[in-house]
Amino acid sequence: MISIVVPVFNEEENMEAFYQAICSVMEKLPHSFELIFVDDGSKDATPMVIDRLSQKDSRVRGLILARNFGHQIALSCGLDHAKGDAVITMDGDLQHPPELLPQLIEQWQNGYEVVQTIRLTTEGVSWVKKLTSSCFYRLMNAVSKVRVREGGSDFRLLDRKVVQTFRRFPERARFIRGMMGAIGYRQTTLDFVAPPRYAGVSKFSPTKMLHFALDGITAYSKLPLRIAFYAGLVFGVVSFALALHVVYIKFLTDEAVPGWATIAASISLLSGVQLMGLGIIGEYVGRIFEEVKQRPLYWLRQEIGLGGKGDSKES
């Protein structure tokens, strides 16, 4: 059986078309499948659409999170509940083409345990978003030992044993693309061009993208901490040399030293470097704080389909 995990957030306009597209592709294949929608705290009618689809088709399940936990947590929730021999994760806005599903499954049958799709481009996306995305992947690969392919997406197939391994990763600040790069197993890739969204607008705001980038960098690299250390070391040496210069002028010469501009500039520069270092350390300490509380990664308000009774569950 193939499990298809789809995190959704305020996607009521896309749900029916997505369901029809998945069924039209999967029903031509010699595999049974389940379609798991993970509602990430939607404010629109998305949960009701999931409920309607589950009543019409027993292959549809719904996991309704108690609040918005974020895309990566929603994906993790779906992977925790998937029952298939292989699990495919994809978005519900039809920018991950359902037509690629047979190719993913074919690669899995050829012996690959992780089949990762690579987005070559997205139709209709601005050059600013393309540029920032490219810069992020280059920065990520420069500072991290784990390589993440540029254009990598959360549209992928995972073998059952990979899913079981993934469930053992307990961290809360999740960057699944990096986790897949570090998880090993036999991996291959498929390229695709993402079409425009079927309906609605992207819910991935610039703020969420920034947080996503910070999670990725801090989860897989200590280089920012080292940069702060080396910057502090360099400026410490410079400050010591400046102090020796001031002592020399003060006690060994008769020159007047106005110097207020130099001192003010030096203080401002060093204060900025110190604040930068504290900010970097604060990012890591904040993540440690979130981890040591050991709260559940997510909890459900309701489970729909296949015997779901609407009871809250935690993980």
Results as ranks from 00 to 15, higher is better:
Ile2Lys: 00
Ser3Thr: 07
Val5Arg: 04
Val6Thr: 11
Pro7Gln: 11
Glu12Met: 10
Glu12Trp: 04
Ala17Trp: 05
Ala17Arg: 07
Ala21Gly: 03
Ala21Arg: 03
Ser24Phe: 03
Glu27Asp: 15
Leu29Ser: 07
Pro30Trp: 09
Ser32Glu: 15
Phe37Arg: 03
Pro47Leu: 03
Arg52Gly: 04
Arg52Asp: 08
Gln55Lys: 15
Ser76Val: 05
Thr89Leu: 07
Asp91Asn: 13
Gly92Lys: 02
Asp93Val: 03
Gln107Leu: 14
Val114Trp: 00
Val114Gly: 04
Gln116Thr: 06
Thr121Ala: 11
Val125Phe: 06
Val125Arg: 10
Val128Met: 10
Lys129Asn: 13
Lys129Arg: 14
Leu131Lys: 13
Cys135Pro: 02
Phe136Thr: 01
Ser144Ile: 03
Glu150Gly: 09
Gly152Ile: 06
Arg156Ala: 13
Leu157Thr: 03
Leu158Arg: 12
Asp159Ser: 14
Gln164Phe: 01
Arg168Gln: 15
Ala173Tyr: 11
Arg174Asn: 08
Phe175Gln: 04
Arg177Ala: 11
Met179Ala: 15
Gly181Gln: 03
Ile183Glu: 04
Tyr185Asp: 01
Arg186Gly: 02
Gln187Asn: 13
Ala199Thr: 02
Pro206Arg: 02
Pro206Lys: 01
Thr207Arg: 12
Leu210Met: 12
Phe212Trp: 15
Ala213Pro: 01
Leu214Cys: 11
Ile217Phe: 06
Ala219Leu: 12
Ser221Gln: 11
Leu223Ala: 13
Ile227Lys: 06
Ala228Ser: 14
Phe229Glu: 11
Val238Glu: 08
Leu242Phe: 13
Ala243Ser: 13
Val246Thr: 08
Val247Met: 13
Tyr248Gln: 09
Pro258Leu: 05
Trp260Arg: 14
Ser266His: 08
Ile267Lys: 07
Leu270His: 15
Ser271Ala: 14
Ser271Met: 07
Gly279His: 02
Tyr284Glu: 11
Gly286Thr: 05
Arg287Asp: 09
Ile288Met: 08
Val292Pro: 00
Tyr298Asn: 02
Tyr298Cys: 01
Arg301Ala: 14
Arg301Gln: 14
Gln302Ser: 15
Leu306Asp: 07
Glu314Cys: 07
